[in-house]
Amino acid sequence: MLHAKSIRMVMCSVILIAATACAPKSTITPAAVGASPDEFSITPVKPLESPKDFAALPAPTLGGVNLTDATPKADAIVALGGRTSTATGVDGGIVTYASRYGVDQSIRSDLAASDARFRKLKTAAPSFPWVQNKYERAYRRLALDPWAELERLRALGVLVPSAPPKS
């Protein structure tokens, strides 16, 4: 009787381990991303507002700004009694300079294909069949250690205001 219970216990354990080992990974982002400081998680946004007239909404503009986007410089100017410009928020000089040789309309698909080739090349070595996150394996050598980079910048005297203070 004791022998049958122990066999049943071992079989249940094997089934449990096999079922959890086959679980798919839900993300393709590197695991190191979660361990780094997230500078953007504390950015406050402005509250949503309903327009006065839904029929008279302006057409969306490429590179335009949203009313809820954070504008700390403009908010500081208004708080100090100044007036902000009515510009769209896009620096025309930067856009003109970046597109001076033309704009490739298929850049996203070209980059996606190039990335797929790179990941296939870097993960061509045989691996375990349950390892599905090849992204981290392909880009491991290109990853930046955020804490080491923070220390390097602090040693150079560079102020990093979004980083946590030294402990």
Rank of each mutant, 00 (worst) to 15 (best):
A70G: 12
T71K: 14
P72A: 05
P72W: 11
P72S: 02
K73A: 15
D75A: 13
L80W: 05
G81S: 09
G81V: 03
T84G: 06
T86F: 07
T86V: 09
A87W: 00
T88D: 12
T88K: 00
G89K: 00
I94G: 04
I94Q: 08
V95E: 09
Y97T: 08
R100K: 15
Y101I: 03
G102I: 04
Q105P: 01
Q105N: 03
Q105R: 13
S106R: 09
I107Y: 09
D110C: 00
D110H: 11
D110S: 07
S114V: 12
S114K: 08
S114A: 15
A116W: 00
R117I: 01
F118T: 11
R119N: 06
R119M: 11
K120Y: 10
L121E: 10
L121C: 00
K122W: 01
A124S: 09
A125D: 14
P126N: 12
S127E: 06
F128V: 10
F128I: 10
F128N: 14
P129V: 04
P129M: 07
V131P: 00
Q132L: 10
Q132I: 13
Q132H: 10
N133C: 04
N133Q: 15
K134Q: 10
K134R: 10
K134F: 01
Y135I: 05
Y135S: 06
E136W: 02
E136M: 07
E136S: 07
E136N: 08
A138K: 00
Y139S: 04
R141G: 00
R141S: 11
A143P: 02
L144D: 04
L144F: 03
D145Q: 04
D145L: 11
P146R: 08
